[in-house]
Design a protein around this nucleic acid. Structure first.
Lengths: 211, 211
DNA sequence: GTAGTCATGTAAGAGGTTACATGATTAG
DNA sequence: CTAATCATGTAACCTCTTACATGACTAC
């Protein structure tokens, strides 16, 4: 049910169409819950049926219309209930870490290539998340949604809200940094293990008496 | 398809029944890909149909039999192909981090309780993973599956294999540690923000001239 | 006019969760 | 004998992915 709460959270800042939500979740830098529109539109209709959100038709050009969704009191209550609830943690399942468990089945070069790709991948994510957090800390967001959210709150709260949002992004950044550092330790380990192997090979040559 | 490769990886150490795999994935400390038996048994049959594994019936007591699965050459090739392949990364989707994005919607006490629970959860995981990695580094595994795996390998490789397995567990530990540290930074931030709020409240009282 | 964006949907299928169901074997 | 473990399955349901489909609007 996390998509539902992600939508409630976003709509708590401002009303939006399904299309806007799709762009926010998947295109914008601040995406926090990636979801395809094939999931978003049906979920919006379910949420409206449950009374968590309400839609109005807004004109779009001359003939067309678009459906704008706004959070209801019931939706706001559900968001707050979820915030206070201790949600169960899903099992830790990570395809790359699974692969790492079997690195001894592959050549060092294969393992090295995998770890390099892993480092690059999380390096990119780290940059993104950290930039996002930094932008919030120094207070020049450039984020329209955040501005709308702040507009509905007491100005004395603004600094606190920015700090908390930055903290959330730093959580993603911290994870990414842990992956980068782990991959780097792995690359160093592979070098070390290969150097040891070569030493052993030399030793056995000497013991064998071939020289 | 990660369950498939998790199974191939485990069966590359020794043949097993579906029940053994279920226990390894879900009960043992070294679990790397949690999966219920309702997924394991059908997957085993599919894999056998594809020739990746082969089963033989082994006697069990007097009347019953059990089906023991062993990896085939084709399964071994598939495992190696997957090891060298660069698998796409799934989108980052984390329910707790989503919740953190909306901490400004909740009271500091609610956020604090959430972060404490988060710290405890990952603290437990960290202990588990780190203990696992440490046991491997000092070389007293106590893991039957690992012993079976080593039995099929050149003794000169044993130290290397143990180092690589320990490295894999450290990856999980590193993630857990990042979560614990992030949660602690969050708790400190909440204290700081609340202290600032109180100062502001005092200031406005003074300005208001009520004292 | 046409390309790109805005806007909203449907359908098939993979992977995962939870619950139900059954029966043999072993340990006490 | 009884409880726990061994062993193997089915069924319903949910989430997410990928692909297909349609049409209006806007900028050039």
């Amino acid at each position: 049910m996390s998509l539902r709460h992600a939508i409630l959270g976003v709509l708590s800042a401002t009303p939006m169409t399904g299309y806007d939500l799709d762009r926010y979740f998947n295109d914008s830098v601040g995406y926090v819950w990636p979801a395809p529109q094939s999931q978003i539109y049906p979920e919006l209709r379910k949420m409206e049926a449950h009374g968590l959100i309400a839609s109005t038709l807004a004109p779009r050009g001359q003939r067309a219309a678009k459906r704008v969704f706004a959070i209801t009191d019931s939706g706001d209550a559900e968001l707050r209930r979820w915030m206070a609830e201790f949600s169960p943690y899903p099992p830790e399942r990570d395809a790359f870490h699974l692969k790492a468990v079997f690195f001894d089945m592959a050549s060092p070069d294969v393992a090295r290539a995998q770890l390099r790709a892993h480092r690059e991948h999380y390096g990119r994510l780290l940059q993104q998340w950290q930039a996002q957090a930094d932008a919030l800390r120094v207070g020049h967001p450039g984020l329209t949604l955040l501005h709308k959210r702040l507009a509905g709150r007491d100005p004395r709260e603004h600094a606190t809200i920015l700090q908390l949002k930055a903290f959330a992004y730093e959580g993603h950044a911290a994870r990414a940094r842990a992956e980068v550092e782990w991959a780097e330790r792995g690359l160093a380990l592979l070098d070390q293990l290969e150097a040891e192997q070569e030493l052993e090979a030399e030793d056995s040559t000497l013991v064998g008496g071939d020289r």
